[in-house]
C-alpha cells in the first residue's frame, strides 16, 4: 500500500486524509486501496496504467482528465461497462475489469476462474 505513487506527507497539505484500506479485485486479482477514493486512484497507486482498450484501434487508454469528463478511464465495474473510474468511489469487494471496446477484456474470465480456484 505504501507505494511510491502515494504521497506520504505533503509540504502544504500534510498527511493526505484517506479512507480505510479495503480490498477489491482487478481482472480477478486482489488489490487494496482506500475506501472512497476514486477507483482510478487506487489503480494508479497500484501501478495500473491501462484502463481500457479502444474499440476501433484497440489502443490502450488510462486516466486523462481525472474528473469524469473525458471517459478515457472507463472500465467494467461490477459487470457494468463504461464506468468512469476517476469519479467512482472505491468500495470493499468491487470487481474492476479492463474494458475492451464495451465489454470486459477477453481472457479475464479465465483469469478470474483461475484465481477463484474454479478451474
Amino acid at each position: 500500500m505504501d507505494t511510491s505513487e502515494r504521497i506520504a506527507v505533503h509540504p502544504i497539505l500534510g498527511v493526505p486524509e484517506k479512507g480505510r484500506q479495503v480490498q477489491f479485485t482487478y481482472n480477478g486479482k486482489t488489490m487494496s486501496g482506500c475506501e472512497g477514493e476514486p477507483v482510478a486512484m487506487a489503480l494508479k497507486a497500484a501501478g495500473v496504467m491501462v484502463h481500457r482498450y479502444t474499440k476501433k484501434r484497440h489502443e490502450p487508454r488510462g486516466i486523462f482528465c481525472a474528473i469524469g469528463r473525458c471517459t478515457d478511464c472507463v472500465m467494467v465495474v461490477d459487470g457494468v461497462p463504461n464506468i468512469r473510474t476517476c469519479v467512482t468511489p472505491l468500495a470493499e469487494g468491487m470487481d474492476v475489469r479492463t474494458q475492451d471496446g464495451v465489454t470486459p477484456l477477453a481472457g479475464d474470465k479465465a483469469d478470474k476462474e483461475e484465481a477463484d480456484g474454479t478451474i
Binding site: 511510491s4 505513487e5 502515494r6 504521497i7 505533503h10 497539505l13 493526505p16 484517506k18 477514493e37 476514486p38 486512484m41 494508479k44 497507486a45 496504467m49 491501462v50 484502463h51 479502444t54 489502443e59 490502450p60 487508454r61 488510462g62 486516466i63 486523462f64 482528465c65 481525472a66 474528473i67 473525458c70 478515457d72 476517476c86
Partner: peptide, 24 residues
C-alpha cells in the same frame, strides 16, 4: 492517447485531492 498523458487538471486532482503522484 497513451496512458500517462494527462491534463494538468488531472495532475492537480490526483496529487492535491487524492494524494497520488501522477508520475515520477
Amino acid at each position: 492517447t497513451l496512458p500517462g498523458v494527462i491534463g494538468a487538471g488531472a495532475a492537480q486532482t490526483m496529487m492535491n485531492l487524492h494524494g497520488i503522484r501522477p508520475g515520477s
